[in-house]
Design a protein around this nucleic acid. Structure first.
Lengths: 350, 350
DNA sequence: TTGAAAGCGTTACCAG
DNA sequence: CTGGTAACGCTTTCAA
């Protein structure tokens, strides 16, 4: 009772300072260490003690201070989740699921949202300052940043992207495989001229999808390919379609868009501005399997990412590495789920 | 140099422990307090000192520990953001914008995602343990929880909902006003029989929208009203429409859906399963102004929430109260932006 | 099982 | 402007 004057005269739980374990201790007439133990998992405390402390605790409205705990345990129990601007409608589900998964394990999520996928500089700084236990990122880091993080001993898991040439853990949907399926279906159905609508240049996902599509087209001997690029949004999807038509002089047999939202933009533009029937006159496919892809006005042919499994895997991969930092990097790649919608003429028999 | 043996022999910045201000201090040959000051805003440090410290700091890869700082300053510089399951596509934008706004002010976001809007129990506990400086919530709290939070002296701002009978701050879009506009437009255009599709029962937003619509209909003397309810999702939107038709025996003149996504579901169901033309045979309106509402297959007539202004207001309202806890509660209500799409026959002249 | 005391890495106060 | 020292609220030995 000497070195903590704050335990002084006020026994009321009202305002000003929040109750500390010392306050609880003096009210319960036990030591502060005892209070600490009662609020721990592997505690050693008699039943009597436990009761006295608990009584005092909720009389004072006491709650252990997670910040202080983090300081001494060297564990913040927080992970950083980094997302880039969600022009892609697919992320919100991901974010919610991830948060819930971490939450079940007693881990809190510190959220960082990037304007563009490339503004990672200050974010890295913040994550380190807050001593997050791990990082799950849907944006790329530079090699320098990655090294900084690694030096700090913080495990990182990449979501749907991977650091080229770096040994890092990642969870991804196999974009190239998905594109191969899409291309094969279209080519089997007899399409010979293609438009490819890619996404923003700083998005790895977009790059992988474009590459996957182009490689497969090439390997099947298709040469009539026109490429344009948008930003993953609906409006640019529309613009891209018209650009495609004017570049070529006429619509291609099929359009492969880097995501569902742009595919939808293409469909609307094709129907409205070019009076084309989809899939009667032209086939249009996307990628992701977001909600609007199912809307029957579009019924997109697409590749759906297995979001449930991916988020589950991502969370546990990160948590594992937090428990055991020596674990070597691991890459898990999930196949997308082919969705045959009606936006593409896919039946070769037709 | 006596009471901190850790500053011992290793001058290398590599593994094991992260560098502390003591490490930097000894390497730079200055006091620890000096290091602390250099890394503060209103510091008092000579240029020479600053340089020496900085040199040592980045040689060691030192970063101030925000957790420790929070402990002493009694400020975590974190706010809790609580969202409920984003079946409503409208939230993702909100979340990203909020995060960026807070981020600009040097405040981090601790994210909590609820399965249903009503599982707030454990979340409140977590927020308090992490000593967040403020709470921005898109879910309701019980009066008891609100009192707990208030006792802890943590400011709260509600997003698009408000605690009934409680003095709390909130930012909202005026749902009832928006519904009035929608109803007036529809009635002016000659519609006399209505279907109302409401959202989940535990969503205040849904309740307000339904109430707003029903009250306005009643005040205009409309009595032919059929109500059904969904969960804000596309699928239930479709089901609701068919339920509406079978309940009435025939389609109403117009359908008012509690959000855009369900309105889209209604449109698809009307067109596909009931061979109705929208807006030729029936008018269908939504609420929110989400991305898909603009897709030209739907071109929804709706009320758009002014998300930019709302998130800006929400963030600054919360930050103000963190700075000055004595500030009395304030409610700011924003008018929605009427969007005349083509999903409703709104021109009385037609 | 319990209590005393030593940190965890900062900031804040106070002399010099 | 600078250095010493006391908190901040907790967990964790180590004895009793």
């Amino acid at each position: 009772m000497k070195k903590h004057p704050k335990t002084g005269d006020n026994g009321n739980n009202s305002d000003k300072r929040r109750a500390t374990s010392y306050d609880v201790a003096t009210l319960a007439g036990v030591s502060q260490s005892a209070v600490s133990r009662v609020f721990q998992d592997g505690a050693s405390a008699s039943k009597a003690m436990r009761e006295r402390v608990m009584a005092a605790a909720d009389q004072l409205g006491y709650r252990p201070n997670a910040i202080a705990r983090g300081l001494i345990t060297q564990r913040s129990n927080m992970v950083a989740v980094v997302i880039s601007k969600l022009t892609n409608l697919y992320y919100p589900e991901v974010l919610v699921q991830l948060t819930q998964r971490f939450s079940e394990k007693g881990v809190r999520v510190l959220l960082f949202a990037l304007e563009r996928e490339s503004d990672t500089e200050s974010v890295v700084e913040q994550m380190l300052q807050y001593r997050v236990d791990g990082i799950l990122t849907a944006a790329m880091f530079t090699p320098g940043q990655l090294e900084t993080i690694d030096n700090a001993g913080i495990p990182v898991v990449f979501y749907n992207r991977s650091a080229p040439g770096q040994q890092v853990s990642s969870i991804r949907c196999d974009q190239e495989e998905g594109e191969r399926w899409l291309v094969d279906e279209l080519v089997n159905a007899g399409h010979r001229s293609f438009g490819v609508v890619e996404g923003p240049g700083d998005s790895i996902v977009s790059i992988e999808r474009r590459t996957g599509a182009l490689n497969e087209l090439k390997s099947l001997g298709i040469t009539d390919i026109t490429t344009v690029s948008g930003d993953f949004g609906y409006e640019t999807g529309r613009e891209c379609f018209s650009e495609l038509v004017s570049k070529r002089g006429s619509p291609p047999d099929a359009v492969i868009a880097a995501n569902d939202v742009m595919a939808i933009g293409c469909i609307d533009e094709a129907r409205e501005s070019h009076k084309l029937s989809v899939p009667g006159d032209i086939s249009i496919v996307g990628f992701d399997g977001v909600g609007p892809a199912r809307y029957s006005a579009y019924a997109l042919t697409t590749v759906r990412q297995p979001v449930q499994r991916m988020t589950l895997a991502a969370a546990s991969m990160l948590l594992e590495r937090i428990e055991n930092p020596e674990l070597s990097p691991e890459k898990r790649s999930f196949s997308g789920i082919p969705v045959r919608g009606s936006s593409a003429k896919l039946n070769p028999a037709e």
